[in-house]
Amino acid sequence: MNPDASKKVADFFSQFRKQTYKKGELLIRADDAPSGIYYLTSGNVRKYAISQKGEEVVLNVFKKGAFFPMSFAFNKTRKNDYYYEAMEELTLYKAPIDEVITFLKKDTDVLYDLTTRVFRGTEGLEKRLAYLMAGSAYTRLVTELLIHAKRFGKQRDKGVEIQASETEFAALTGMTRETVSREIRHLKEKRLVSLKKNKLFIEDF
């Protein structure tokens, strides 16, 4: 986010009550109408749906500086179908939806920055969708690894480190954990990645 826009957003949300959540706690449940817009100051939140098979399908991960669920704010009549869950202990502020909309209407710099981020995110979703519909298990996993590395990876001497488990990547790609494990093994054999506990290292990224 643009530094000026980021400060304006932080100043706006800091007027409201600060909240904390523990890992695994739900901020919003499916079928519940969100009572406000959350602004994340630490930690990550995952947005997911439950498939007909009872499997979790992760649609997005929000990190520090994100405010959500904006789709519900702009279309209040739409049913909420998703769960929002803390991935670790986190802190955030929650503002009334109407006040957030008023704030965005008054500050075009923040609205422009938000729009830019939405379109950037849409491009990533389109890429994921293309590989989910037509790509092999290998290309689906590689695409998700690259997206995850770009958003959450930590730069190291000869590559990028990602902190995520095979189970989490299974939920992100819509594949089984066994399939993800097999494809990661193929990547390891090609010396493209290495894996230690829940940390995956992408070589020469």
Rank of each mutant, 00 (worst) to 15 (best):
T122I: 08
N75Q: 14
V61Q: 09
K63A: 13
T108E: 06
A130M: 15
L129D: 15
R128I: 09
E55W: 03
R128F: 01
G121A: 08
P34V: 02
A134N: 15
V100Y: 00
V100A: 01
N44F: 09
Y82W: 07
Y84P: 10
G124A: 05
L129A: 13
K23T: 13
R17F: 03
F68D: 06
F72I: 03
K23S: 05
R46T: 06
A134L: 15
V100L: 00
S51V: 08
I37N: 05
N44T: 12
Y82S: 12
K63C: 12
Y48W: 01
Y93L: 11
L104D: 05
Y21P: 00
N80S: 11
K127R: 15
T41D: 00
K47E: 12
S71L: 10
A49T: 11
E88N: 05
P69A: 05
D31L: 11
K106V: 03
P69G: 04
T139I: 12
S51A: 11
A73Y: 12
T77Y: 14
D107A: 06
R117M: 08
E55G: 04
V100I: 08
L111R: 05
T91N: 06
L59M: 13
Y138N: 11
K18A: 07
R117P: 00
T91E: 13
G24Q: 10
D109E: 14
E89P: 02
R128M: 10
M133L: 15
T115E: 04
Y83G: 05
Y39A: 01
N80Q: 05
D32P: 00
P69Q: 09
D107M: 05
T108S: 06
L104V: 13
V110N: 03
F103Y: 03
T41E: 02
K22N: 07
K127L: 13
A33R: 05
L92Y: 00
D109T: 05
K18R: 15
G36L: 08
E85K: 10
L90Y: 11
V142Q: 14
P34M: 06
A134Y: 15
Y48T: 08
S42T: 14
